[in-house]
Design a protein around this nucleic acid. Sequence first.
DNA 1: GTCCCTAAGTTAGTGACGATAGGCTATCGC
DNA 2: GCGATAGCCTATCGTCACTAACTTAGGGAC
Lengths: 233, 233
Amino acid sequence: MRRDATLSEIGTSPSPRRARARRGEGERLRSEILAATERLLVQTGDLEAVSIRAVADAVGISPPSIYLHFADKNELLWAVCERHFAALDEVIEQAAAGIADPIESLLLRGRAYIRFGVENPEPYRILFMSKPTATPENFPPERILQSAAFDHLVQAVVRAIAAGDLAGDPTIVSIGLWAAVHGITSLFISKPDFPWPDKDQVIDRLLWTQIEGLATPKARRRLPRIEAERGPR
Amino acid sequence: MRRDATLSEIGTSPSPRRARARRGEGERLRSEILAATERLLVQTGDLEAVSIRAVADAVGISPPSIYLHFADKNELLWAVCERHFAALDEVIEQAAAGIADPIESLLLRGRAYIRFGVENPEPYRILFMSKPTATPENFPPERILQSAAFDHLVQAVVRAIAAGDLAGDPTIVSIGLWAAVHGITSLFISKPDFPWPDKDQVIDRLLWTQIEGLATPKARRRLPRIEAERGPR
DNA sequence: GTCCCTAAGTTAGTGACGATAGGCTATCGC
DNA sequence: GCGATAGCCTATCGTCACTAACTTAGGGAC
């Protein structure tokens, strides 16, 4: 629990005392703080290394200056992770781009989601595993529902339903898919030292189970072909 | 981030200075600390309210006395949550007790798991959503695999496979089921203010999707009957 | 009864943390 | 050249987990 990594030990240079911004350029500091925070968060891979003091030192300013641009530490962290949230949408869309088959699309989306989470554990943890009290007011939970990422998932499900491949309420189906991929992602993040069997095998089995469980009989007949193209069932 | 609830505000009486234990009864304090910590954790429902100072005050001792029995705060917290881990196994076994049908058993187990997690959010968070670095040495990740709870799940899956209802590797199937129920549980815990559709409906759809995705064609024919008895698909 | 050992705690303090109150200073319009 | 103010800083608070060193009370030996 005690902090055991001092600032110098985590590789941040001891702050060459940043030059003061010119008049009218006060907002420049805001983006410098954001950049430094993101760097600290991703490089150390440890939220605890991202203290207000550490960020201030990385930027080359005094700790209180951060509060000129962010109400508190949570707002700063969520401002950083909001970019990751947008990036999550992008990598998913990219993974599913050009895929006509609705079932294939959902499979590839799931793989991309899990991959992104595992590769960005600390942002993922803040976005989806933090305490409700830690979410600032400008990032209320309903923003997830209204987000591009969630909307794109629902749209993909709607297309699958329209094609006769899936049945049910699009929102509830989407939440189920989200829960499944979030479940394995968060377990991988929280228990990296768990004696996992082959992780790709675990992921594939989970995704195929979801898809097979959701698919209509008509779509189910198509699954072996998709499996042959896109990975094991 | 700043502490905003003082000790007096969370209902702990201001410590009547506990009587010193007699010789040879030093271990009594250990269980008193455990009990007080659990009470604080469950009553406040907030890990941040459980500080070493708060626990010490609740017991009626000075903070350093806790370190006579626990190496650090994490060890204390995990010692408390280990009981919850055992309790999780019990409620699941109780939920599935007397259920002969392997598929029905898995369904009821899933419901019990989710229910337990949602009803004990802070212990669940510590056990399954905390940082890897926060797990003390006497609770390594492989203990989950060796635990009664996980073993009982695998056994239930093995029985289902033996009955011809499921197919595949028992461990991987079990992990998939775990991931699914953990996913929705942890989302409910992290995002209580998310505009969820009816939560029971979400749970049922997720569980039925898993079961339908895992079931063999033979077992699949039995599902409508189970659905009629045990809740919607 | 008294001595002394040791179990069972305490007091005092360290350095980090998030956050706040209030002060200083360089720049820009005039 | 000068005042206003944007853009920061110094000093400090209260809390945190944790440690070092001290004290006190109980019980056996004599």
